[in-house]
């Protein structure tokens, strides 16, 4: 199970990706209360919420070093 690179919390990827419906023209909608993700340097990172993701995107190298990536 991937960890949030900021707070190290384990993220339930399935929950973050579970669809709750579709838009009027067929795009899947996801639950905004579940975890989120971000595409950085060619790969997906998962976060517990927007606060951690915002911290990560401000200084990604800080958190990638901490995580040993």
């Amino acid at each position: 199970m991937p960890k949030d690179p900021v707070c190290s919390k384990e993220i339930d990827v399935a929950a973050a990706r579970t669809t709750t419906g579709t838009t009027r023209f067929g795009a899947a909608e996801v639950d905004p209360r579940a975890g989120t993700r971000s595409f950085f340097n060619g790969q997906w990172y998962y976060f517990c919420g927007l606060e951690c993701r915002t911290k990560f995107l401000a200084t990604p190298q800080t958190y990638l070093k901490q995580a040993g990536s």
């Binding site: 990706r17 838009t23 023209f25 067929g26 795009a27 899947a28 909608e29 905004p32």
Partner: peptide
């Protein structure tokens, strides 16, 4: 890109 293309997900703000 058509919005119903598989792999596109939307999350409200």
């Amino acid at each position: 890109v058509p919005m119903d293309t598989p792999g596109i997900t939307v999350r409200p703000l």
